[in-house]
């Protein structure tokens, strides 16, 4: 049975800052023979505006997203927080607009996070991937708590040849990003990311892997300033192999 076409929802941060993560995701899907579509007009799901309370702007971004993506068979995104936005908050934004709400629900039903899509929809845990090192996995808040996705990334990582997994203490403690929080309350944000980095360092890993580039950007930025050498990678990059890292 031919695989459904996956429509890529890459996330604004991936598009602008970490395009290699998007490319890694494409490479993984290519390897699996999954046909891909990429609506070039996509920009942002609206999460930064939503979390900051700017719901009119968030609603406009949501409408645009729904227009762009609603004909897709399956929408896959490498960011847990964006998927949480679409699945959880889009229907809330349109709570009092029945038609839009229905459209939002339809889109929500076919929007998946990357690891979730591989494991739960395609039924794949072994991608024949190879990557050497000791990895520790950071559970992003929205992915773990809102979407309940904790095992899928770990299952995928366990099947990567040459990679061993070392759990850190408090893997699901918030990294301190929180969107505008990191800019408006930088000292508190720093305290949280320092705790996260200490836990990462204590795990004995040489790579930290995550499924949300917002967290990774935060962790990498602080590690860089602290002069720590650990590699900070998105799951897609590990699955795609060294050249995408």
């Amino acid at each position: 049975m031919p695989a459904a076409t996956v429509t890529l929802f890459v996330q604004c941060l991936v598009d602008a800052l970490y395009p290699e993560v998007g490319e890694a995701m494409v490479q993984v899907f290519d390897r699996l023979g999954v046909p891909l579509l990429y609506p070039e007009a996509q920009t942002c799901c609206g999460q930064p505006a939503y979390n900051s309370g700017h719901h009119r702007e968030a609603e406009a971004a949501a409408r645009r997203f729904i227009d762009l993506f609603e004909d897709a068979e399956a929408i896959v995104c490498p960011s847990g927080s964006c998927v949480a936005m679409v699945r959880r908050h889009y229907p809330e934004l349109f709570a009092h607009q029945p038609i839009m709400r229905e459209r939002a629900l339809q889109v929500a039903r076919k929007t998946f996070e990357f690891s979730e899509y591989l494991v739960d929809v395609l039924g794949v845990v072994d991608l024949g991937a190879a990557f050497s090192g000791i990895a520790t996995y950071h559970d992003s808040c929205h992915l773990a708590r809102t979407l309940g996705i904790r095992e899928q990334p770990r299952q995928l990582l366990r099947h990567v040849q040459g990679l061993s997994l070392a759990e850190m203490n408090n893997s699901d403690a918030c990294c301190g990003f929180g969107g505008t929080f990191s800019v408006n309350y930088p000292e508190i944000s720093l305290a949280l990311v320092d705790d996260k980095i200490d836990n990462i360092l204590n795990s004995g890993a040489d790579i930290v892997v995550g499924c949300d580039v917002s967290c990774l950007m935060n962790i990498r930025g602080r590690m860089s300033r602290r002069g720590e050498n650990l590699r900070v990678l998105h799951l897609a990059q590990v699955l795609a192999g060294e050249e995408r890292a």
Binding site: L17, E20, V183, S189, G221
Partner: peptide, 24 residues
């Protein structure tokens, strides 16, 4: 303005080519 972030962290710069550009 951006000092909130960069006071304690380095900032990932924009990639030379965005994902969209690479896809194209």
């Amino acid at each position: 303005l951006k000092n909130g972030w960069t006071a304690g962290r380095d900032l990932q710069p924009m990639a030379e080519q965005s994902f969209r550009e690479r896809w194209r």
